[in-house]
Write a protein that binds this DNA or RNA. Sequence first.
DNA 1: AGATATGATTGCGA
DNA 2: TCGCAATCATATCT
Length: 340
Amino acid sequence: MDDQTRMLAGLGGLGGLTQDVGDPDSVRKQLGQPQQDIGDILQQIMAITDESLDEAQARKHALNCHRMKPALFSVLCEIKEKTVLSIRGVQEEDPPDPQIMRLDNMLLAEGVSGPEKGGGSAAAAAAAAAAGGSPNDGSIEHSDYRAKLAQIRQIYHSELEKYEQACSEFTNHVMNLLREQSRTRPISPKEIERMVSIIHRKFSSIQMQLKQSTCEAVMILRSRFLDARRKRRNFNKQATEVLNEYFYSHLSNPYPSEEAKEELAKKCAITVSQVSNWFGNKRIRYKKNIGKFQEEANLYAVKTAVDAANVSAQASQANSPATPNSGGYPAPCYTPDGRL
DNA sequence: AGATATGATTGCGA
DNA sequence: TCGCAATCATATCT
């Protein structure tokens, strides 16, 4: 008969033991002889289900106060020590899951899991900025995107909260149960900890599913939004004029600095990246077909010259935006009368 | 409707 | 990260 069977058998006969209460060895000797039929024990166990809560509590109390309890407890401790090896292997700490980390990072970047103010609206604003609409143009898609993102965010947080609440409730429940049980059987804090970590692992795998589907939803939303970006609109006439003016007056080096881009963006009511796009397109298209742009170039050269003249009439000649054409792109050629 | 213009995107190299 | 070159997708012109 092994220890556990002996223990079961012994439970039924606790009442009959009177001597050597504190000595596990003597207890084991006595417990070693089956004093009651297995059938009786089973009957007792089955009877537990028929007991009321009060009866069960009373019974539990009686058991806890039983004079044999310390002896039984120490026997259980011994058994425990023998079996503890088997659970040792299970409790290695696993490192943070890279998959979860990826999902977390993405949710943070998209403004789903981060703080309310910065993330969502910032990401939406950035996306809207990339969308290229002027403040008025993009507003419909922008607010639409923001609303959808906020919806996703809200669902994500409420689900997450639900999971966390369920997890902590369940953990508490299990911990209370184990603490309660620890009065009658040896349960080390380490074991409770282990059980808690098992529960947490289970719940974090559920959380991962939530995060995964949230990421998917964001990706779908984003891709829809990016498709919408293709619906471009031409810049207004004034904006194109401002950009062209800068381009042709800096034809030798049509690369606006970051500050210049910002200023142009402000003047044209577009974004800095739109200014960059415009200059990129302009440079390449001008270079590819200088002839075609000649007229335009002359037009703006004259315009710039007139502006500069006006400025110099008022003040000194110092800050004309035009730089002499030297290298870079070929300058437009003039006829003596100012025409091509 | 087809041609052309134009803003945006993508892939690559420095 | 920036710019170039090719390309896409849409707007506008003829």
